[in-house]
Amino acid sequence: MPSESVSPDVTVVPPLSIHDMTVAYQRKPVIWDIDYVAPTGKLVAIVGPNGAGKSTLINAALDLIPRASGQVQFYGGPYRKQRHRVGYVPQRESVDWDFPVSALDVVVMGLYRKVGWCLPVLPRHRHTALTALDRVGMADYAHRQIRRLSGGQQQRVFLARALVQDADLYLMDEPFTGVDAATERAIVEILRELRSLGKTALVVHHDLQTVAEYFDEVILLNMRLVATGPVATAFTTDNLRKTYGGRLMLVEQTDRIIGKGTSG
């Protein structure tokens, strides 16, 4: 039950702690010496330029790609023991949308662990999935083949799938990329709802303009950690310049971005 799964130790043991993690593709390191401890009950944006290793950070933490070095702990234990407490929202392009499944089928997949090996999906599982689809405003599209959904709707299906996992920590890879305004609002709403339930979300995010509005904390990443912490202290012009180097045209505008974020 959801209320029981948030055990008292949540406040003491961090949802995610990464120590000294390095990941390399073919001997060339992609991310270096990452040390990070995630706060509980906060929305954290992972921000950085293309190729900074944002997705790699998530994938390596989840054992999806091998780490060259370092330890990762979820709620004080290795990932394979804590799977049930971690939800994952992959990038939208990572799957074949021509696959013959409906939106509901995709959401039910998030429950496969609870259903158990070799056992059939029961009506109550479908009901749970339908409720999650309703939460993201997609109940009307439950039986539609996933190719015939818009990009934003597809992203909401992914979000619903993560919701049914009923995790305590969510790792989301670019949920805001290429979605319409309605979906963006829906995702933000869900994130805030998760936070109010004491859950944590680490979200790879591209739009610097909305970081301060949507998130409590940031991880600024460019192969190495540039800065982490609350938006107010870590999301500064200086740190952004360090993260993006000369590549950020927006650096000139960051004062405006940050100013707008804190006032809004």
């Binding site: 999806l64 994952y88 990572s94 799957v95 997949m109 998030g110 662990r113 090996w117």
Partner: peptide
């Protein structure tokens, strides 16, 4: 596993 191998792996399949 055919549709989303990464999700399958994170679910322990």
């Amino acid at each position: 596993s055919a549709f989303d191998p990464n999700l399958a792996t994170t679910l322990g399949i």
